[in-house]
């Protein structure tokens, strides 16, 4: 299985990786992208099983990325890992078929719950 972790903060990407390991998903390949543009390029290049994306990023935000991904007909499992979470953001995410919405600070259990159906 391949996971794409998208966040503009290198240290947050590390923390997401570490939490994936703590949640028991350490056996999967993780690829990192620093914004929506890099993520799109990675998604063109490779097939991913899950995309875990930050919301606020320069160049292309997480929600713009999701819109773009769906526009291209890609139905990859896509969820957000974000410190901002308003009802409006959640509704927008759901309308584009986001599968989960993890808010920072998160725990390994949060990751398990969000990803259990997709990864094993």
């Amino acid at each position: 299985m391949q996971i794409l972790v998208v966040d503009d903060s290198p240290v947050m990407r590390k923390i997401v990786r570490r939490t994936l390991r703590q949640a028991g998903f350490g056996g999967h390949d993780v690829v990192e992208a620093g914004d929506g543009v890099e993520a799109l390029a990675a998604l063109e290049e490779d097939d991913f099983d899950v995309v875990m994306s930050d919301w606020n990023m320069p160049n292309m935000s997480g929600i713009e990325l999701l819109e773009e991904v769906r526009e291209k007909g890609n139905q990859v499992t896509f969820g957000f890992v974000t410190s901002e979470s308003t009802a409006l953001m959640r509704a927008r995410a759901t309308s584009f078929g986001a599968s989960f919405f993890i808010t920072k600070p998160f725990t390994a259990e949060t990751f398990e719950d969000a990803l259990a159906d997709t990864l094993d």
Partner: peptide, 24 residues
């Protein structure tokens, strides 16, 4: 300090959980 700023960024979620005013 850039790493630490991520902690500060995330603390906004704790503030938003507890107050009616939304901050970032």
């Amino acid at each position: 300090l850039a790493n630490f700023k991520e902690v500060i960024n995330i603390l906004s979620a704790l503030l938003n959980d507890r107050n009616d005013v939304h901050v970032r």
